[in-house]
Design a binder for these strands. Structure first.
Lengths: 138, 138
DNA sequence: TATTAATTGCAATCTTGTTGCATAAAGTAT
DNA sequence: ATACTTTATGCAACAAGATTGCAATTAATA
């Protein structure tokens, strides 16, 4: 993915273009799996961890990435599907976590099945977390 | 739920019977929603937080409770369904998190729908996290 | 009741998440 | 290109959560 393309993505989300954002964006685009802040800290020691923290936050708020629920302590983030624009943000995601290599992948192109919830409950978003063994580790 | 019943649950899971475990177990049984460690710390200041931490761990390992994936920092735990015995442990859970009151409920009695995952991936467990407004807050 | 094995409390550490503030850099208008 | 305004960055500092080691205590068992 070219720097120009990345800059356009940032512009489209009304974010200032900075080195850190370009590098992090590039990392997400080149990564098959979801990333945590500590992943980024390991990759980019030229940036302060607070800067990476705020970079992730700005991406989150502008709808470029989404937070993936997990039962470890650390938050992981995945790129949003193309259709996830700030004003057309869909919140249904399928994620796969490999219990062997630990990687988390997003299957944004797959449909989240219908859910049965007791009456009186209003659904805003649905997250499906599948645990198991990924294709690489199987 | 009587103390005797709780003691039996602990015995069935090969856990020693201690005051802390009885109190925590009772709390789970009486709580409609999932609990976090800090919930327990607020409830039981007579126990050290490390003790509560290890109590939760022992319940986790013996399959009495399960960890609920979420995208906040703090882990929350829910009681496992009756069928969740150590050697017959099913891992499919539906959870509802209310964005208003923050409570997390487990719908263990509801079927987790079929999931479509790319070939080569092996599924171990499926967690469904539904966000929205609960019946109380709606 | 004595013995053994597991649990508890305390201290301490580590990681993650988070904020305030001064400095530096990006966008914008001149 | 230059000055100006706004936003981002780095540093320090702190809060909360998770985690371990160890000595003292308690539960299960003989």
């Amino acid at each position: 993915m070219s720097v120009k393309t990345i800059k356009n993505i940032l512009k489209n989300h009304k974010l200032r273009i900075t080195d850190c954002r370009i590098d992090v964006m590039n990392q997400f685009l080149n990564s098959k799996s979801a990333l945590s802040q500590s992943d980024l800290e390991g990759e980019f020691d030229q940036y302060d961890r607070v800067t990476l923290y705020r970079t992730l936050n700005s991406f989150l708020e502008s709808g470029i990435i989404h937070k993936i629920p997990n039962n470890q302590g650390t938050a992981t983030y995945g790129l949003c599907h193309d259709t996830c624009e700030p004003h057309n943000h869909h919140h249904n995601h399928i994620h796969f976590k490999c219990n062997n290599c630990g990687q988390i992948e997003c299957f944004d192109d797959r449909e989240v099945p219908m859910v049965s919830i007791p009456t009186g409950y209003q659904i805003e978003s649905v997250n499906l977390i599948v645990d198991g063994t990924c294709a690489n580790c199987a």
